[in-house]
Structure formats: structure tokens, C-alpha cells
Amino acid sequence: MEVMFDMPDESNIKEVLKGVSRRKFIQGVIAGGAGVSAATYLFRASTATSAASAGERLITINVNGRDRRVDVMKQETLAMTLRYKLGLTGTKIGCDRAECGACTVLIDGVPRYSCSTLTHTVRNAKVLTIEGLAKEDGTLHPVQQGIIEEQGFQCAFCMSGFVMASVGFLQTNPNPTRAELAHGISGNLCRCQDYDKILTALLRGAEIMRGEATHA
């Protein structure tokens, strides 16, 4: 089976794999199953009751501006850490395999698929999730505000991924054309596929970000 991972550097991979065979590693990432694979990342509880402890270690990661101490497995993905250990369930898992972007978060300001990023690799980075986007006082980020004003998205399962991808993209191109923005967020899939209104809403967010628009 072809598996693609998002691994920034060789030494990291080696470290992650230390003490766990490659086969075990793949197994940990792809569900077993008889004949048909139920391929997905698997959640491992932080308890000693597990049958085959893969070895966890306590690390610190910076999420939404706060240092968080967390026990993670070597093969644990950031999506699972966020959702199951830090209670940040705004980051969604739509495919678990770098196909849909529902899990997109910003790592040092760059949009990344958290389902395909190992938690170990973000130890020295700043992670921003949808929960950390609004200000402390509840003031929404302009991109969030744009969505509310334009009634963007439908079921919204893809929304946090699109929002994080847009926020990252708009930092590099604050005044994109419709087509440029579409390219910038094309790593995200919306199954409700109301792409037209999504673009309108996100462009409205960009407008607010540039301070050109008065809030409705």
C-alpha cells in the first residue's frame, strides 16, 4: 500500500522510528483488517491498559499561543493529539490521508494537513487551530467574520480546514483575485461543493482583513 507522509526531515523520521520497526510503524498508521484495510490513523489512549504500548513520551507543543504538555506516541499525528488529547475538536478528520484538507492547521503560519503531520515534528513550532483564531475577547478573525456575513459553507465539516488554509494564504497574498484564492485553497475539498459562496465569503474576509470593508 502506498502511504504518503508529511515528514519534513530525514533525521526526524529516524528519531520517530527509533525503537519501532517500519512494519509496526505502518501498522500503527494504517488500520489492519482482514483482507480489506480500514485504513485510518488510530487513536491510542494515554493509559497503560493498551495491549502493545508503542512507547509514549511527554513533550511540549505550543498550540494557540499556549505551551501544552502532552503524552504522545511516536507515530501519533497532530490531528489525533489535537482532537483526542487537547480537546481541540474544531480540527476535523475527513480522510486521514492528505486528500481533503479538513484537518488543516497553521504550523508556524503555514497551512499543513495535521492528519499527515507527526506531533513530534512540531515540538519547536507554533500551532494555530480554528479555536485559536478569534481574539481572547471573542472578536472573530476577519475570515470568520466574512463567512458569517456571507452565509458561507453548508455543513461546515470542511470549514475549519478552509478557514485555516485561507488565513495562511492571505498572509502571503492579502489581496488575491478570485482565481488566485481558489488556487491558494485548492488543497481543501468541500463535499457540499458550494465553492462559489465559499470563495465569496473568504474574499469578504480578505476585504475585512485589509480594512476596506465596514462590518455589516
Binding site: 500503527g28 482482514a34 493498551s50
Partner: peptide, 21 residues
Amino acid sequence: QGEPILAVAAVDELTAAEAIE
């Protein structure tokens, strides 16, 4: 192909998946 035959409940998914194996 792919029709569920049984399901395992365990303390976590990795354990459940290993049990399936």
C-alpha cells in the same frame, strides 16, 4: 466486499485493530 462481519470494542483503536488482526 467490505461488508462488516463483526466489531471489536477496546480501550483504544490500536488495540481494537490489533484484536481484529
